[in-house]
Amino acid sequence: MPSSALTSADLATPKRENNYVNISAYKFITFDDTAEKRPEFIAKCEELNLKGTVLLTPEGINMFLAGLRHEIDAYMAWLHTDTRFADVVAKESLSDHQPFTKLLIKLKAEIITMRMPLIKPEDGRAPSVDAHTLKRWLDQGHDDNGKAVVMVDTRNDFEVDVGSFDNTIDYRITKFTEFPAVIAANRDALNDKTVVTFCTGGIRCEKAAIHMQNVGYESVYQLEGGILKYFEEVGGAHYHGDCFVFDYRTALNPQLQATDTTQCYACRAVVTPREQISPWYVEGKSCPHCQKMSVEKSTAETSV
């Protein structure tokens, strides 16, 4: 997960209006030389002063990086010299601060942990729907075949709480490894509908849609590029709230601008602007969620 906490020194740095380019990108592809390539990624990112996280896995690559325009452009040009990643296109947003505090180049087993080894997006993706087509489906209330459209959020519960599509199905999962069980349990309720899976940037829903096909769902799509691409192309139509992101900005609105939503330093819960009014919210120390957990713990200990 990308680094997220800014220090007081970072915040004291004078702002430069939207000078930082934040990119997110991934590709599922056989990548069996991750250990050998890691030093090259470290050297290139350090040379270009980039911060953020790059995950190198046998099933592909996932990146969350930020830097100045020329630095990001130079990194993408370098990445494209590897034929495996020549077609990688990054989603972009802008900020006036560097949103990461350090650079992490990690070796992992999966881009996103699902523990379903038979799911290999490189061998074939589930059908995808682009942002404009999805908006049209949601505008008219059905897909092009007249079938009802159901949105399924594949993100964790705390991300969904920040914002999601209208009338979406939210199974309140706390980690992606829970998704296969809950989607199997609800197959009968969804199988006569067109299901569109979605997530922040497209990775989870890519695996989720393939899994749903594998277990017998007849009409399932993934939202191409996830919520962030949807925001970029059509704005916030049929979406309420913001989109949680894993950097200091915490959440982006449909204009891809940072909001006043933040994360508690102590418990890591998402804290809305309204919750920041609470006397329990002390920046960098506590929030109403901390208080709630404290009360619940005290109650449980008393009842024993």
Rank of each mutant, 00 (worst) to 15 (best):
T53M: 11
T30I: 09
E178Y: 01
I72T: 12
Q98M: 13
G226R: 08
K102E: 09
T81S: 04
D32P: 00
A185M: 02
N49H: 11
E218I: 10
T302I: 01
I183M: 10
D33F: 08
V149D: 04
P121M: 10
S95T: 06
E232Y: 03
L190A: 03
P273D: 05
T177R: 10
Y221Q: 06
L228H: 08
N19T: 04
V196P: 02
E296L: 15
S303M: 13
L134M: 05
T272V: 02
C267T: 03
V196T: 08
R204N: 02
G146T: 07
G216A: 03
Y75R: 01
P273F: 05
N22F: 01
K120W: 06
Y265W: 12
T13G: 00
Q255P: 00
E275Y: 01
N167C: 04
I61A: 03
Q291L: 12
D143I: 06
D144H: 10
K15S: 09
E46V: 14
M293R: 12
E92G: 00
G241N: 06
D161Q: 14
E218A: 15
K193L: 08
Y265D: 08
N62E: 05
K175V: 09
F165D: 03
K15D: 13
A266Y: 08
T7E: 00
T53H: 01
T13V: 14
R187I: 14
E92V: 13
I173T: 13
T174L: 07
H211F: 15
G67Q: 05
L103N: 01
A5E: 02
A9L: 12
M76C: 11
T13N: 05
I210M: 12
V304K: 14
G52F: 07
K292C: 09
R155Q: 07
M114K: 02
S93K: 03
C45V: 10
K15C: 02
L223H: 12
D247I: 07
E283K: 13
D260L: 09
V295S: 04
W137I: 04
Q98N: 12
R38K: 15
A74T: 12
P279L: 15
L94N: 05
